[in-house]
Design a protein around this nucleic acid. Structure first.
Length: 640
RNA sequence: GCCAGCGUAGCUCAGUCGGUAGAGCAGCUGAUUUGUAAUCAGCGGGUCGGGGGUUCGAAUCCCUUCGCUGGCUCCA
């Protein structure tokens, strides 16, 4: 007698034969739309999943957020299906869904071209339109290996041998078959709104010594609108690209003759950096920090003692002169430590909070360099805090408070916070680790920030907190990092004399809030889309005389405004006002003051605000305090 | 570092089959004296990223090197 399996769906209960597809029950359900997946105990299952045991099922429909990953995974199979159709003999690697889409890796002698992508996408649409069923197959391992061997899919054979149990699951659509856990959509016809985006190289299993595969990236959504929205988002991100805006707004440049990854800050970028740094210094002084300046190179022996020569692989080669080797600094810590060690320290003077906008040099591999975001010479907003164990929690609280205060001033209010704890290989004493991890977590709890714990993801020398900020279009950027360092404290034998007259080891906290000036500036440019708030705008106001006879008035106003501390320019080009306005708008200057006969007669200006258009006449004397208030408050918008 | 693509005037780009390099914007000069997103005209501007090779002849083909871009790897 055949075994019947009890299946509960919503309020209905079914008994179906063991091994038959769960989808059998669908015809009995009073539903107008067919689901694409089942959910059972929080796990998604194929519609064709065989009834194996008593289950309670819920239905998952197209458009359900958790089904998106399945859609994209099925889209990656569709991609591999099309590619194996079009390029016989090609080997397929792996093809998962990823955050914004999917990819599939292929092994092939000749790389794909952009034209290939078009052809592949076309073939994908054909297969999708044929609405081929996607079938789940359970094969025993030897059989699966035989099938993929026959097909010349050696990479898959390797995967099955590594990952497969005695039985392996495979998915098959038409003549394409893939080793895969699933689940998948019921048929290719459900994949309607997708687009292939790019092709790049990728290492097999992420190993740079292994073969290099061709990776095709794409994305897929349940509706055309979502796909369009995503493609628009990519366009929007392009418009915000700091490399493009950096050039258009003359903020910074790089130059082949200087060397890769080295940044020249032009006057308009430099003034912004100056303003950020001034703000940063003021806030640090308020929080009881002292400042340090340290040199850019130090004897190689210092870096041997710190362990950098042994553990840090981004150091430039050393320089040699007068019989000594010197090292360009990749970090500031050893210098601050030298300052600490310059004399004996007492428990009474802790905590010491020593900050430095310290410029460091790292030999980043050429392929990873990227605009301002990944460079070889950069200035960290660094600080090291030396404190006692009983001060640890308060110090970390203070760092988090200062970090969020600074970030909020720039309009970053949403964070993702991670606490990374002790990894398997670590240095330092276990009790110190425990104490530090507890202090970090307590500080996070009291900060009110939500956070997640990355168990065992800390670096070997200490636990850390990382804060990622969310920018204006929802992208995440890593800026703040707070790290305990048991390694350097040990290596440099840091001590203080305690109340008991004995030597004790201080805790060393290493922290950067904005990360680096270069990186933070790059993020800021994209966040603001080049529209810097008034307090940061390189040129806060441009005065546009309508005709030559108004220039004297424009100049007079310029000096009046300058005397008030405003950054003001006059556009005295022999152009029409329309042209001058266009130029000012393209330069994203926040305030545009048009002056002509009318304005001279009542000592006013006609105000135009970037992004807001003409705001009418306003008297000079009433304008000045309003503008100054906006600047003083670091207002992110201009509202009079 | 690896795979792929790209590098032409300050910027954005065109340049066919290998046959003496072009446009728009910007710049300069002149005219225009202008009221809320491009006034008109003229002029100057290039070792076609650098180096080497093939060829009667190279922006174009080949090699090499530097830089940039998208990924990969890396970011103790």
């Amino acid at each position: 007698m055949e075994e019947l399996i009890r299946i509960k769906v919503e309020d209905s209960i079914f008994f179906i034969k063991k091994g038959t597809p769960l989808s059998q029950i669908l015809s009995e359900l009073p539903i107008s739309e067919k689901p694409i997946l089942f959910r059972s105990e929080g796990v998604l299952l194929d519609l064709s999943y065989p009834a194996d045991r008593e289950r309670e099922l819920s239905l998952v429909f197209a458009g359900d957020p958790e089904a998106l990953e399945v859609l994209r995974h099925s889209a990656s199979h569709l991609l591999a299906h099309a590619v194996t159709d079009l390029f016989p003999g090609i080997q397929v690697g792996i093809g998962p869904a990823i955050e914004n889409g999917f990819y599939y890796d292929f092994l092939r002698e000749t790389p794909f071209t952009p034209e290939d992508l078009e052809v592949i996408e076309k073939r994908m649409r054909e297969i999708a339109e044929q609405d081929q069923p996607i079938n789940r197959l359970i094969l025993n391992k030897e059989e699966a290996i035989r099938i993929f061997k026959e097909r010349g899919q050696d990479l898959k054979v390797e995967l099955i041998q590594e990952k497969g149990g005695s039985e392996v699951s495979c998915y098959q659509q038409g003549n394409f078959i893939d080793f895969c856990l699933g689940p998948h959509l019921p048929s290719t016809g459900h994949i309607k709104h997708f687009k292939l985006l790019s092709v790049s190289g990728a290492y097999w299993k992420g190993d740079e010594r292994g073969p290099q595969l061709q990776r095709i990236y794409g994305t897929a959504f349940f509706t055309q609108k979502e796909l369009d929205d995503y493609l628009n988002f990519l366009e929007e991100a392009k418009k915000r690209d700091h490399r493009r805006l950096g050039q258009e707004l003359e903020l910074y440049s790089t130059n082949e003759d200087l060397g890769a990854g080295l940044i020249i800050w032009h006057p308009k970028g430099a003034i912004i950096r100056h303003l950020i740094e001034t703000f940063w210094k003021e806030e640090h002084l308020k929080d009881g920090y002292d400042f340090i300046y340290s040199p850019h190179i130090a004897k190689l022996d210092l870096w041997k003692r710190s362990g950098h020569t042994e553990f840090y692989d981004a150091m430039f080669p050393p320089l040699e002169f007068e019989g000594f080797k010197y090292q360009l600094k990749p970090m500031n810590c050893p210098f601050h430590i030298m300052a600490y060690k310059s004399r004996q320290r007492s428990y009474r003077e802790l905590p010491l909070r020593w900050a430095e906008l310290g410029t460091v040099y790292r030999y980043e591999r050429s392929g990873v360099l990227h605009g301002l975001l990944r460079v070889r010479g950069f200035t960290q907003d660094d600080a090291h805090i030396f404190c006692r164990g009983d001060q640890l929690e308060d110090e970390i609280k203070g760092v988090i408070r200062l970090a969020t205060k600074l970030l909020k001033a720039f309009g970053f209010e949403n964070y993702q916070v991670y606490l990374a704890t002790r990894p398997e290989k670590y240095v330092g004493r276990l009790e110190d680790w425990n104490k530090a991890e507890k202090a970090l977590e307590e500080a996070l709890k009291s900060s009110g920030l939500s956070y997640q714990i990355d168990e065992g993801e800390g670096v070997f020398y200490g636990p850390k907190i990382d804060i990622k900020i969310k920018d204006a279009i929802g992208r995440l950027w890593q800026c703040t990092t707070v790290q305990l360092d048991f390694n350097l404290a040990e290596r440099f034998d840091l001590t203080y004399v305690g109340e008991d007259g004995n030597f004790h080891r201080p805790f060393l906290i290493h922290r950067a809030l904005l990360g680096s000036m270069e990186r933070f500036f790059g993020v800021l440019i994209e966040h603001y889309k080049g529209n810097f708030p008034l307090w940061l705008a390189p040129v806060q106001m441009v005065i546009l005389p309508i005709a030559e006879r108004h220039e004297a008035y424009a100049r007079e106003l310029q000096s009046v405004f300058r005397a008030e501390g405003l950054r003001v320019q006059v556009d005295d080009s022999r152009e029409k006002v329309n042209k001058k306005i266009r130029e000012a708008e393209l330069q994203k200057i926040p305030l545009i003051a048009v002056v002509g006969d009318k304005e001279i007669s009542n000592r006013s200006i006609s105000l135009r605000i970037h992004g807001q258009g003409d705001r009418g006449q306003i008297e000079v004397e009433s304008l000045i305090p309003k503008v100054k208030t906006l600047i003083q408050n670091k207002s992110l918008d201009i509202n009079f």
